[in-house]
Write a protein that binds this DNA or RNA. Structure first.
Lengths: 225, 225
DNA sequence: CGACTGAATATTGTCTACAGGATGGAACTG
DNA sequence: CAGTTCCATCCTGTAGACAATATTCAGTCG
């Protein structure tokens, strides 16, 4: 089964294949939704989207199917797709679930910790702090997501990771307008979290992550007033 | 906005509409997968399924899309759909997540408990015990699912419920061959759970549910040997 | 003037057709 | 006989067309 060509294994860059259109349509629509170019409640007309993206209706439909099962759009039979309208209740429920998933991830990460992982986490944390210091809000938000994703990766539970990724993205969608404020403190909490994970202290990692995500929830609710 | 006809509100039985084909195809395929009529790893050819179900390929494709995002089939680009093959690792991860979600549900249920809810739970429990006594394995499994679903409903968190429903169904899929054994003890554990919820004791409800689901996991792993 | 009825329009749901890539096997070459 | 190349076949991905259903708006009647 050895390759007969003398080429080293990874030398060929695997030449980017365009991949199915539906996936690119999915990405495009999700981007449009999360950036609020498509507003909650808006009616998504298949032919419009298709025309706008330069494809036929079929890939659009398949993308909408997926967006529907993931909760981004509501698919009313014979009426079409509507961008999901988050309610206060739902946002709160999502935050609850997020706390649950992230907390468990922190615990598992602490249980499976190894040295290089901590190094990477600290690197991410440093970059995030740098972004905050430079008032680079978008950068800070991105680093925040990557940090949490890394913790999730350390947890070593792919199922958990997938659920958390979906929940997180939706939380971030609701939360975006408010997220701007939450800056410095969040990153000191991250430092604490990394320390707890580094010590392999499951209890403390759990507690810190819970406090961290609950803090986020609190800020979210304060905004309503 | 009041109705001008003199008909009482719920009098019209809302006449069953066939609903979108994709949904019925989805149900049919999911049934075929969970019953193992379609075996893990099997290649699902769209035109075959379409012909077999008497519809065209389009609804089949849309159903496969949804099944793919929910983890029942793997959609390899340009190759088609294959029934997902669960690995031991994945089964274990799913059980972990299930424990997490069910445990939280039990806690929330205990927090929001009210009298009639307990009555309903006990009714379900009694029916389940009756099924076990009558060696009605399928009936017992069904009642088990309904009981857990009821607890989830009491928790009052729709997001949590939806995730748990998906995870549960997949766990049951992996678990089906083994589930037969687990009968009586499971239902005494259910009694304990209901008692804890009835007292509004979050701590104890959490502990009991964790023990219950972890017990399930243990049995699952013993089977491997 | 308001409410109902009806047709016209727009949009979805489904089917059929066609192009491109993947798979498997036969023929060919060393 | 082993390995490779090429071809036939099958299947998926995408597009376009048609039928069915919901929505909108104008016209009509009380």
């Amino acid at each position: 089964m050895l390759p007969t060509t003398g080429l080293p294994q990874g030398a060929v860059p695997k030449l980017e294949r365009p991949g199915p259109l539906r996936d690119r349509v999915y990405e495009a629509l999700l981007e449009l939704i999360t950036t609020r170019a498509l507003q909650p409640g808006q009616h998504l007309v298949e032919s419009e989207l298709a025309g706008h993206l330069g494809v036929s209706r079929q890939p659009v439909r398949e993308a909408l199917q997926r967006l529907s099962t993931e909760g981004w759009v509501d698919l009313r039979p014979a009426q079409g797709a509507f961008v999901h309208e988050p309610t206060e209740d739902e946002a709160d429920q999502l935050l609850t679930v997020r706390t649950l998933l992230e907390t468990e991830a922190a615990r598992l990460a602490a249980a499976h910790v190894h040295a290089e992982a901590i190094t990477e986490l600290e690197k991410l944390c440093a970059e995030g702090e740098r972004a905050v210091a430079a008032d680079d809000v978008d950068g800070a938000v991105a680093m925040n997501a990557r940090l949490h994703a890394k913790v999730m990766e350390l947890a070593g539970n792919a199922v958990l990771a997938e659920l958390a990724a979906q929940v997180d993205r939706r939380v971030r969608w609701y939360y975006t307008p408010v997220a701007r404020q939450r800056g410095r403190q969040s990153w000191t909490e991250h430092r604490e979290l990394i320390a707890a994970i580094g010590e392999g202290d499951e209890q403390r990692a759990t507690a810190v992550m819970r406090a961290h995500t609950e803090h986020t929830r609190k800020i979210y609710h304060e905004r309503e007033k």
